[in-house]
Design a protein around this nucleic acid. Structure first.
Length: 348
DNA sequence: AATAGATCCAACCGCGCTTCC
DNA sequence: GGGAAGCGCGGTTGGATCTAT
């Protein structure tokens, strides 16, 4: 396609800029009555001096029924952060998990609110780290900033349990090497450090000093929720929430469904587990460690069956995970049609 | 109250992919 | 099979609005 106006607009005198209420009315009335068919034909049929592309955009982003207006909920914001971590700037894909939201809205929200917070954390130019101490320092310094990110739009960041269980280095992007000292094959070797003294005796986040982390209990094949019979594994499915202050909380799915006022955002996460066919995301079964049992007693609705023989706490911050995963997911070779890199769980 | 700077967000642009002929 | 047309997407722009001084 050439420069300048779109082809569909090149032969007509088209109006540009903001849409008037009259134009909105014409477009809405036409599409409600006849559908859009070929967008290039819509302006003529609807009596609009606009290009078809402009009509399509106006309909999709503003006039289409079912659009949710207004600010993003904390759950939506949290979901966007997580999905952006995973998918990169695939706004249309991300928007699919946010009913009533458009890709444009999500993109604008990201660029205007979230991105700036991340930039403030110097995420964009994070220096490679070469050892655990450096990672720890980095994560600790980032933690307070990350709290800012969390508190900006939400009180919590939702992380699917299975995502925690599968924090592994994907194939490295050719032009964005892994941080120095990282083993591309065995992420576990470098980053997962057992912390037997991890003090989970209370919910007091000040009791321990950790950045927001993914906390795998043990590595096991994640189990997908059966979406045809949603929650039929509810007794042993769980999710992990951190408020960014290192106070991880585990909830089982029915508890979450009852807790969150925006179930659509949560359902988005469930769909996320389907997205990659269970290889990378899914709701993990029996991922709650007995170490967490004291914590669990603080919640009604916490899974009553807790069985995991061991627990490891990775020295992997949210930040580090993003840095590790984003290049591969954003690399030019990773198109929407090609499979996402497989994150293979490593066993300890 | 005036104004400059910051922020938001609707709309546009251009590229790549798909469909049509 | 190949070119044209159409569509969808991500990036960018610029006007409107908000906020700080």
């Amino acid at each position: 396609m050439g420069h300048g106006h779109h082809r569909c607009c090149s032969k007509q005198k088209v109006k540009r800029g903001m849409w008037s209420p009259e134009e909105d009315e014409k477009l809405s009335r036409h599409i409600s009555a006849y559908g859009h068919g070929r967008w290039s034909a819509v302006p003529r049929l609807a009596g609009l001096q606009r290009c078809g592309k402009s009509c399509r955009l106006r309909w999709i982003n503003y006039l289409r029924p079912g659009l949710k207006r207004g600010s993003f909920s904390p759950q939506e914001a949290a979901l966007i952060v997580d999905l952006q971590n995973i998918l990169g700037n695939k706004w249309a894909q991300i928007a699919k998990y946010l009913p009533g939201r458009t890709d444009n809205e999500v993109k604008n929200f990201w660029n205007s609110s979230i991105k700036k917070k991340l930039m403030a954390m110097n995420l964009s130019n994070m220096a490679p780290v070469s050892n655990l101490a450096a990672i720890s320092n980095l994560a600790n310094s980032a933690r307070s900033n990350f709290q800012g990110l969390c508190s900006m739009n939400s009180n919590s960041i939702l992380i699917p349990t299975a995502q925690m269980d599968q924090v592994c280095i994907p194939a490295a992007a050719p032009n964005d090497p892994l941080p120095q000292g990282f083993d591309q094959v065995n992420f576990n070797t470098n980053l997962f450090t057992p912390l037997p003294s991890f003090p989970f005796s209370s919910l007091d986040s000040s009791a321990y000093d950790l950045p927001p982390v993914w906390m795998p209990s043990e590595y096991q094949k994640p189990q997908l929720i059966d979406h045809q019979h949603q929650f039929n594994k509810q007794e042993d499915t769980s999710m992990f929430i951190t408020d960014g202050a290192g106070a991880p909380q585990f909830f089982n799915l029915p508890q979450l469904m009852g807790t969150f006022d925006d179930t659509s955002a949560f359902n988005g996460l469930l769909k996320l587990s389907q997205m990659t066919d269970g290889d990378q995301f899914g709701m993990c079964s029996s991922s709650v460690s007995p170490v967490l049992a004291p914590v669990s007693t603080g919640f009604s609705g916490f899974p009553s069956v807790l069985h995991a023989p061991k627990m490891q706490v990775p020295a992997v911050s949210h930040i580090q995970f993003i840095h590790s995963v984003m290049p591969a997911f954003n690399s030019p070779s990773s198109s929407s049609s090609s499979p996402l890199p497989v994150l293979t769980p490593t066993t300890s």
